[in-house]
Nucleic acid binder design. Structure first.
Lengths: 204, 204
DNA sequence: CAATGATTTGACCAACTGGTCAAACTCACG
DNA sequence: CGTGAGTTTGACCAGTTGGTCAAATCATTG
């Protein structure tokens, strides 16, 4: 493995190629279903060469996950207590939907992990994510208490946003087959906006 | 393997035990992440003994899938054109949610497959499921056209129901961690009923 | 209680997989 | 162009895994 210096041109290129290839392979076969050899070939390297850049299969996976989680939670972090409640939530929904469209592999990688019981993610979920969710759930609760949006269980509201938006990435194979020629992402933004607008616009 | 006769008492018991064990193992590790040996042990058999009842790992998986799909689609089939539109849909949502609670492993098994591109399910989706979805989407469209429920893209409406209900099974690990002591299924039925009632109750 | 078919298993095999290593090759720089 | 660090690879290894097989054991029934 390279020493502790600044990465060379080749290191930068190859590490990037490996992570890109690994995202492809891991997201479509899961951790155990992916082989180092396959990732290496997808990155245009030999297996020993790949292992020269990453000490193990798990090391690649971890680096991928670490990078993923941060970007994954950014849209929620950006939910602004100062903004207009309904518009903030609708914008959050659209940001999440956009991520499903632009980064479906990342979404599936995450889904793969959680579906299998989150063995490698449990700690992050139990700490970082929990804190963030508690904070934002409280914000939603405040908005409801002051009558600025309709009442609904705040955490379930968050779950529903994740579920609905990520569905388009995670179940892409099913969604596209059932939609035929129509691109799911054509109608999805409008559908979700309508759903949450009807759901959350204060009554009376 | 047993001959083409009526199954003996032992055959019935062991085949059932194998399928039960396989559901456990496949749903929590995916196809490639599961080993025949592990399934065998979970079923209380030796590996060669298991392979006496099923010719291969894939054969177990296929039998499991075949059985699954039928029950999986039953709640949608039961959507009754003669019933009250809103109540029919709400009842469908609750049936699906109930299945997520009662059969989470089946849900995860299905999710695992779809997330990984549905390699072993594409044909069924492209035929049986497509037909059923077209039929029910048309029914929803009719209800909308006659003003009995609010307008929304029918297929996206179906996707949202699947997504929201199965989320509680598929992302169970995440949901439970974030909910802490509270059982997710306590508030979920009410949350989803409210959501779809607000969404679909005809305006004006 | 035979004896025949059903069931079970230990031993085994070939393919695959994650990872190692020494030797070879390439590149940047003086 | 030489040289040392950075890069690449073929050969290899040990552990795992899906699957086979002959021999042993068990259950059923005439």
């Amino acid at each position: 493995m390279p020493a502790d210096r600044a990465p060379t041109r080749i290191q930068k290129k190859n590490r990037a190629a490996i992570l890109e290839a690994a995202l492809d392979v891991f997201s479509s076969h899961g951790f155990r279903g992916s082989t180092v050899d396959r990732i290496a070939k997808a990155a245009g390297l030999s297996k020993p060469n790949l292992l020269y850049y990453f000490s193990s299969k798990e090391a690649i996976f971890n680096e991928l996950m670490a990078g993923l989680l941060d970007t994954w939670l950014d849209p929620l972090r950006a939910l602004d207590p100062e903004g207009d409640p309904l518009e903030e939530i609708l914008a959050y929904v659209q940001r999440k939907l956009q991520m499903s469209r632009d980064y479906p592999r990342e979404s599936r990688l995450y889904a793969n992990e959680i579906v299998q019981g989150a063995p490698r993610l449990h700690d992050v979920i139990a700490t970082d994510l929990t804190v963030l969710v508690e904070e934002k759930a409280q914000l939603l609760q405040d908005w409801m208490d002051t009558g600025r949006i309709n009442r609904a269980h705040p955490k379930h509201l968050l779950f529903s946003i994740w579920s609905l938006t990520q569905h388009y990435a995670d179940f892409d194979a099913q969604v596209r087959t059932l939609m035929g020629a129509e691109d799911p992402f054509d109608a999805a933004p409008d559908y979700l906006e309508t759903l949450y607008r009807r759901m959350l616009t204060p009554e009376s």
